[in-house]
Design a protein around this nucleic acid. Structure first.
Lengths: 178, 178
DNA sequence: TATTGTTATACTCTATAACTATA
DNA sequence: TATAGTTATAGAGTATAACAATA
């Protein structure tokens, strides 16, 4: 964050000239009062919208809870899946996670660089890697599981014990079990 | 997509030299069979994981359903909120959406460029804009609501009618109602 | 001094195409 | 020919800092 000279400016995602054309004339119309209540009624009746809001809460609380270990949700999923299925290939992992195989590479690079997993040569197919947790990876996963338990408990308190049970049952259909 | 000369190469997110160091030695260890079933049990017991998987399904189905109108979930939320709260300011909108105000600018640029909304001058505060739907915006929102209804119906079929009712009730706590 | 909208910047995630090495 | 892993590339989403205009 200190060496600015190494940075290359990025291509802006939209051409600049389009923007000025987008805001040309602005007639004066009465606006809502600043402190006025905002109606969200139509959105709050959509289960899809509520699922999205719930997911944002989950990720935020997960990240805050797991911050001491610096573990994101997808990293936790990767470590858990490799721990449960030692020798997993990257292709199999990418299929289960719903991530294209090229997107998995930097994620595994990072975890391998931290010494949490290793890519071993497969004995059956020299193209593929067999993924294993290291001892450090197993140790971190134990600590992560404890924190995830705290996070899950906070979620249970948020929706209530019966709500939590209902979620596990109703959303079971979305769990990818192969 | 044709004029390659205009493109500026992007800064890779991670330094290249770190990668080779990350995969040094690879001992040969027995790997899981390629066709072997993969255990997801520990993840499928976490409500947070299931909420995430459900949200991925929701976005995918939403995008496929609304593709004819080229409306993403966040764009639908913006149009709905402005339709329900005409004259809304960008600050108020960004707070409700949970988006920082700078992130809202390109979203509104795009929708304004498509003629779906307009930024009008506020009568009370010359720093702020009052957001309104255009006639085209209202027309599109009507059509979008019909498609969102189809999407919601598919979600209801996915989790069952009683499951859908339970979701609306259990997840109500995540709906931001100000 | 503080706030609103904007710009510039950068990191993450996701996706596609092409390459290497293997099958 | 097809597949596993990798690289390069591009776009979306999200975040911070700084600026001008205004409060």
């Amino acid at each position: 964050m200190s060496d600015q000279a190494l940075r290359v400016p990025r291509q802006p995602s939209r051409p600049k000239k389009a923007r000025s054309a987008e805001r040309k004339r602005r007639s004066a119309v009465p606006a809502n009062e600043p402190g006025a209540p905002i109606s969200l009624a139509p959105l709050n009746r959509l289960a899809g919208y509520l699922i999205r809001q719930a997911q944002l809460w989950v990720f935020q609380d997960f990240n805050e809870t797991l911050a001491p270990l610096d573990v994101r949700p997808v990293q936790f999923s990767i470590l858990t899946l490799i721990g449960e299925n030692p020798g997993l290939s990257q292709m199999a992992l990418s299929r289960v996670l719903g991530i294209v195989r090229s997107g998995l590479v930097p994620l595994l690079d990072s975890l391998e660089g931290r010494g949490l997993l290793k890519r071993s040569a497969s004995t059956t197919d020299r193209r593929s890697h067999a993924l294993y947790l290291t001892a450090d990876g197993r140790t971190l996963l134990v600590r992560a599981n404890a924190l995830v338990g705290e996070h899950e408990e906070r979620l249970r308190q948020k929706v209530g014990p019966s709500g939590h049970k209902q979620l596990l049952k109703v959303l079971e259909v979305f769990g990818r079990g192969i």
